[in-house]
Simulated scan of single mutants.
Amino acid sequence: MSIETINHCAGCGVLLQTEDKNKLGFIPAEALQKEPVICQRCYRIKHYNESSSITLQQDDFLKLLGHVGQTKALVVKIVDIFDFEGSMISSLSRFIGTNPVLLVVNKIDLLPKVTNANKIINWVQRRAKEANLKVVDIVLCSAKKNIGFDRVITAVQEHRGDLDVYVVGATNVGKSTLINRLISDYSDLEAELTTSQYPGTTLDLVKIPLDDGRFIVDTPGIVYAHRLTEVVKKRDLARIMPDKPLKPVVFQLNEEQTLFFGALARFDFIKGEHQSFTCYTSNAIQIHRTKLERADDLYADHKGVMLAPPNEADLDELPPLVKHGLNIPKGKQMDVLISGLGWIKVNSLAGSQLAVHAPKGIKVITRESLI
């Protein structure tokens, strides 16, 4: 087998080459004899869980997504329920044309078990409408835990007809994991996409032939800098990205009290009645409470040590914290989302004045409460 007969990596889809190990698609010549044929980058991610500094640029991602609107296909859009707004592709309709959209909401296993699935679907419908995304169906699932996947398969069958299936999503939403499940159900081909916790794993269009002559097409994940997962050091990804059901942590706060989420973010309850706030973040994140008047000094004295992650050595590489003033109106059940970190539910209907300090560029929004 030679580089002339095997053109693309079976893991990330990139064009293979044997000349320059510092460029995309490098594969040692002797590795061309192995099955599946994957580039060195995918091999190291798969076997050693290593990251790579080689990634696709944003403009290249958008050019590749342009392929979706140039064909008739079912578009399977995957979002992460833990970071719904952060993982939405806001301009998706511009790329997909009139193609039908199946919205798959992944990582549903992270929500507390008492969560009502119908309420979540209704909530997602409202969020999709706000994003001007017209969907033919919404499916809740966990590709990792094999929850609701039969419904995903059924929905794809219902809406695909004889079309190809394009799968799109931001980085770290579980896209490749879900496609690997689709492959096992739809194709006899032994293929496995590269999956890892690192952004930008898929680098080009990966076409997996189906038994009926059509294809499942994996597209590169959009890298959004407004998500904390794209900003922290890779060693901190495992701490901020939950892999177990969230354990809500409730704080009863008086006005002028502050919560620190490691050194990654700060939540100030500036003004309002005594009320409770429920934090939905990774169980590995330590939350510290203090008085608002002491918050600046606490951060200055303990960031990177007691307030971690990140650790002290990595603080200089984290963008400076920027203050976002927020007002929760009376009579509203609202969440405060810090993209990639989680959200804080404001439990009182009395209204409150808040502030969130998050790394510069990270999306901070209020929304209708998810739970």
Rank of each mutant, 00 (worst) to 15 (best):
T258P: 00
S53Y: 04
K113H: 10
G331W: 10
Q197E: 14
S91G: 02
T5M: 09
I45C: 08
S184M: 09
I45T: 11
R160G: 00
C12H: 03
K119R: 13
K291D: 13
E50D: 12
F149G: 05
K129S: 09
S339T: 02
I344A: 08
C42R: 10
V167F: 01
K291F: 14
P248E: 10
L64W: 00
L56V: 15
D218V: 04
T98E: 14
L341M: 07
A358D: 02
L321M: 05
N106H: 11
I120D: 07
R227T: 02
L307I: 07
L102A: 12
A131I: 00
I222R: 15
T154I: 03
T115Q: 04
D188M: 05
I38S: 12
N311P: 02
S2G: 15
Y43C: 01
G331R: 11
A73N: 15
Q197Y: 08
R227K: 13
L253I: 04
P309T: 06
S176M: 03
T98V: 05
K234R: 12
I285V: 09
N106R: 10
I328Q: 15
R289F: 03
L16D: 01
D20Y: 12
I208L: 06
I287K: 04
V346D: 06
Y299F: 15
L354S: 03
P199T: 06
I371G: 04
G13R: 08
V104Y: 00
M241V: 14
I138C: 10
G148W: 07
R126L: 12
A313P: 00
G169W: 00
C279I: 03
Q157E: 15
A10N: 07
A131M: 06
T195N: 14
L189Q: 10
S276Q: 12
G351E: 03
L140V: 05
F260A: 11
P248G: 13
L337P: 00
L349M: 11
L102K: 07
T115R: 08
N311H: 15
N311W: 11
K175D: 08
Q58I: 01
T290N: 05
Q157F: 05
K323L: 08
N146M: 13
D60T: 10
A155P: 00
K144G: 00
A31F: 09
E85W: 03
N49G: 04
L140Q: 11
L65H: 13
E368K: 12
G304L: 06
Q333M: 12
T154M: 10
A128H: 07
L228H: 02
Q57R: 15
T195F: 08
S348V: 03
D211C: 07
L178Y: 02
D109W: 04
